[in-house]
């Protein structure tokens, strides 16, 4: 089984971090993984995206051009990538920042007010992890195990105190019934 994920949003929303978390979680679970960032002249407020592949077989091309999962953290990302999602795929939309609905009918869509939920739990920068929590909940190919272990790999030792709030954000996403 191969799960191809595209995470897209503004620079600063933690798009690359969420991807790293999922990749490390895959690695811990002995999956073959790849993580490929866009690396244009991006900066905070610009656009950023990353391709993550989790697979039971060696990963071929690391470029995700037809994602099974699209995590759209802002409107330009949804506009750009909605058409690329595989039929039967999953689209996760940050409904705080994206007002429009997904127009396609051959995909499953989840609207999560990630940015608003993040503010509610006192972690305004963790909308990314709330959405990631929802992805973990809804995607059969991604287990809800090893969350702490994976966080341990991506949260640097210097910021170890932030592990708990990241975990809380993941849990908030997993618990969100929308």
């Amino acid at each position: 089984m191969t799960t191809e994920i595209l995470i897209a949003g503004f620079g600063g929303q933690g798009v690359l971090f969420a991807g790293k978390f999922l990749a490390y979680k895959g690695l811990i679970e002995n999956k073959q993984v790849s993580w490929l960032p866009s690396y244009g002249p991006e900066m905070r407020g610009g656009t950023a995206n990353c391709s993550v592949i989790l697979s039971d077989e060696p990963v071929g091309s690391p470029i995700v051009s037809k994602p099974y999962i699209l995590m759209a953290m802002n409107l330009p990302s949804l506009d750009k990538y909605e058409k690329d999602v595989l039929p039967g795929g999953l689209i996760f939309v940050d409904s705080t920042l994206i007002e429009r609905k997904v127009t396609r009918s051959d995909v499953k869509v989840f609207y999560i007010p990630s940015t608003a939920l993040a503010a509610e739990i006192g972690a305004p920068t963790l909308a990314n992890m709330i959405m990631t929590g929802k992805v973990i909940k809804e995607c059969d190919g991604i287990s809800s195990e090893n969350l702490e272990a994976a966080l341990g790999k991506v949260v640097s030792a210097r910021h170890a105190d932030l592990k708990d709030i990241n975990l809380k954000a993941l849990q908030t996403g997993m618990d969100y019934a929308g």
Binding site: Q32, Y39, P62
Partner: peptide, 10 residues
Amino acid sequence: DGTTGQMMEP
């Protein structure tokens, strides 16, 4: 190339 330089894999 830029891809193999920037990508992360185990």
